[in-house]
Nucleic acid binder design. Sequence first.
DNA 1: AGCACGCCGACT
DNA 2: GTCGGCGTGCTC
Length: 748
Amino acid sequence: MAEYANIIIDISHEKLDKTFQYKVPGQLQANLAVGMQVEIPFGNGQRKTTGYVVELTDAPEYDVEKLKEIEAVVEDSVPIESQLIALAGWMRNNYGGTMNHALKTVLPIKQKTKEKKQRFVKLELGKQEARERLAMFERKNHKARARLLAALLEQNPLPYEMVTGKLNITSSVVRAMKEMEILSVEERRLYRSPFGEEFQKEKQRLVLNQKQQEIVEEIWQEFIQERHHTWLLHGVTGSGKTAVYIELIDRVVKEGKQAIVLIPEIALTYQTLVRFYQRFGERVSVLNSKMSAGERYDQFERAKSNELDVMIGPRSALFTPFSNLGIIIIDEEHETSYKSETLPRYHARETAIQRAKMAGASVVLGSATPSLDSYYHAKKGEYRLLEMTERIEEKPLPACEIIDLREELKQGNRSILSERLQELMADRLKAKQQIMLFINRRGMAGFVSCRGCGHVLKCPHCDVSLSQHNNGRMVCHYCGHEEPVPQVCPECGSKYIGGFKAGTQKIEEIVKKKFPEARVLRMDFDTTRNKTGYEKILSSFANQEADILIGTQMIVKGHDFPNVTLVGVLAADLSLFVSEFHAAERTFQLLTQAAGRAGRGRLPGEVVIQTYHPEHYCIELAAKQDYCGFYETEIACRKLMDYPPCGHMMAMLVASKDEMTAMLSAELLAKKVRQAKEKGKLPGLSVVGPANAAVAKVKDIYKKVIYFKHEDYGELVKIKDVLEDFINSHREFASVIIQFDFNPMNGF
DNA sequence: AGCACGCCGACT
DNA sequence: GTCGGCGTGCTC
């Protein structure tokens, strides 16, 4: 019965990023709801536009005299959209950014006109005549017209965006020239390829082992009684989580509800996809990052018109417009790709839980190495924990061996391959079994360590390692602490101190020299640059066309190579000392996953972890595959520093083309908060920085970061709101880019 | 995005 | 002086 409606005008225009309030006419008051698309008069000429209702209220927030009335409701606006819009509102509040950003990520890109049709500016004169007009414009000093006409003589027709963008011509110029019949604006329909699939459904009964059965039953008993929870399924690699997902989804679908399966960006293997197709046939669809906006829109349309039961895809699949959503599954829930790096910087896990709450659905999070965050919530009872500790068919977990590279150096072995690893490699090559060598390249951005004792230079204030900068100094990216690069190790006095360098190419060379008879494949960003490279390398390794696969993080993600019996982790510590509080967690996850690649077939596997820090809890516990032990140790560290998940953290990016402006603005904002703190406001808040961002300058934009820590997430949101208001009401910030990131995972 | 408004250079 | 191009700012 609301009197007024707050409306977002057409979501494709950045500049209209605010709500406009309209009066709700009597005949619409009964059935207008948040999320509906409406027709409204807008601007001077009462032009008709469409917009979305984002809020209904009885309190006018604008001069009532000037309020206009909503004209009509757009007919095909379906109620599911209102749920997604409500979700967008939640995202905006919790992650910052604008309502427009939030709506754009949540709604299927409607812009039929914009997506299917592209606008072109076309010259309507002959070349000769055009040149005459051009000369005339130049003579008359009509700069904008001359610029456009000259460009049109070069290329005809021109895309509209090119005209307004690169040529910097305003619409009034285009309109004037259109009236002069020099040019015309044309809309051209773009071709959009349909989505075809060549799988056929061959339904085969899936046999669950007892443990899988128990877990399905436990979740299902709650589900059918409409008691919806977030379940954390902690299952070691190879314990058969996918079968549990498929069985659950099958039951959900039989209840007439739909399912969303989220997977990390590159993790969807062909095998997994086939399993879903075999079970659900045409009623399952897949989204991927290579699809065009149009193709994705088509899939969303299919979901809306009830043609689908299951949607599989990366984090954006979370917004599939299913009207009766029953379950959301997040596989490999610890993966960092679930956190968006563009606005709004939402986390798919938290957002999924929110969507499930709105839709009355359950959430299942699955991982062999749950994020600290999720396990923490599970321990606190907010999620329900389910454990699968054994591999299917009682395959043993691989045996792990830790090799101390400091000892190797003392023995005079300067090679990247330890004696023991070489020995095992020779053995496997002889037995015609396969080997994976994993080089941990995450965070190669120069930390400095001692090759004698393994000591790593750390910030005295922040408990993160220092990064070596081009200017030759060691810098902390959290607080800005700086010190010179030492000549000798401050711990043991060794002069073998410096950055650790080893690329995949280098290793390939070494391996080829050492084992000239072995067939070696390398997988890294170079060899997978073209789209097919990735699949090609994996399938040729799977077909045993090579003996050794060398690669970075990419090779450890969930692929099943039954003939691999040896996994070598060449330098386990490389990711241990990046300047991030997540470093140990990431390292543990990578090592556990890498180790999980060995012994998945009939033969038992072995893992060799080479490290300079054999005594580090992260390495020791990864070798033992002891997740719980790791969790307990790591959570104690987080608690000590109030890092998430024990507290909450908000990063604020202050960026500008001018370094002085960036620095001064950041300092001013930090000072403002600190002053409020001194007055006794904001209890429990701590402010760190400003400091340079991890990458301090990108494309000539200087980036500064301020960190805020507080126990209560809501308090951080409030601080964000106050800061946003302050920034918007002070002109000196007009040229400064401000962004917030809650519980950051990758930094700015 | 699209429209009105108003500043400033060009020309009768 | 006037005419008109072209950037600026506003739209509930």
